[in-house]
Amino acid sequence: MTASSLSDYHQWASTPLSTKPAYSVVIPAYNEAWRVVPTIGAVATYMSSLGQPWELIIADDGSTDETAALVADLDLVNLHLLTGTPNQGKGHAVRRGMLAARGDVVLFADADQSTPIEQFEDLLGELNQGSDVVVGSRAADGSEVSNKSAARHLMSQGLKFLVTTGFQIPVSDTQCGFKLFTREAARTLFSHQVIDDFSFDLEVLFLAKKFGLQISEVPVTWIDAPGSKVDAAKVAAKFLTDLVTIRFNDIRGRYNQENHDVTKADLIEDRSIKASLDGNACNDDENSSHREPVDDGPTSYDSTVGADRTSTTKHEVKL
């Protein structure tokens, strides 16, 4: 890390982007007051050193601790805080963040830095080879996993078996919290994704396969962060239920593309941008049903917003 890298960080921290970001990083957070600030520091330093415009989105899941206040107090101009109703689920928080993201590529990363951010470029290289979705994998050849408990290891093996045999998803690790998407893939997948808890990863990859998107897998180094909130037994039970839910949703046609426009994306993006320009956090869960599109007009922050917002007036939106 050089002095110029620190200078890059300070530039990013204090100067609003004048162009659309090349990269967006989305970090979901629920009661992460203890660890979110160091993660933001590490992510911001590294991403700023890449020399491309980028934005950071913290999708707070209505934390009941000081997470949102701590993030807001950092006063980083290209960090956008999305706030919400308490504990709607990780999938819900990630969806809000991914649909608000404006980067050409969008990374979803866990708040605990268990997959160090420096591996972003490994995934980006794969995306640049033509993939739509690149999954960080703890199970692929070349991965390194540290401090993983036996229970989590056993759960991972079970899930891997179920996913590969039951869903034919071509990755060995669906649940790693480090995934990279093209912007188009992110918008398509997360405007269809409906599962609000941790099984959303599987649902997103199921949808990617269903829609014919190119999925790749890159081995990553992963360190089990102390204080993990994963309860292996509960996760396994819920995951099995969600496997059935995903199949059922598919059979009922809930994932058919004609049933979804980009209404959620447009609304969230509009309101996030407005909040960012106003210097405020954006609450995505206020008045969450029967929303009408917000017509704030195009902004200098993203000139594509106005163009994308057409034909969104007939749809009920539940975020």
């Binding site: 890390m1 050089t2 890298s5 620190l6 960080y9 600030v37 160091p38 933001i40 520091g41 590490a42 911001a44 330093t45 590294y46 050193s49 950092l74």
Partner: peptide, 12 residues
Amino acid sequence: VSGPVAVILELT
């Protein structure tokens, strides 16, 4: 102090 650590110390 490395860059990431410097930034983390600054943010905190």
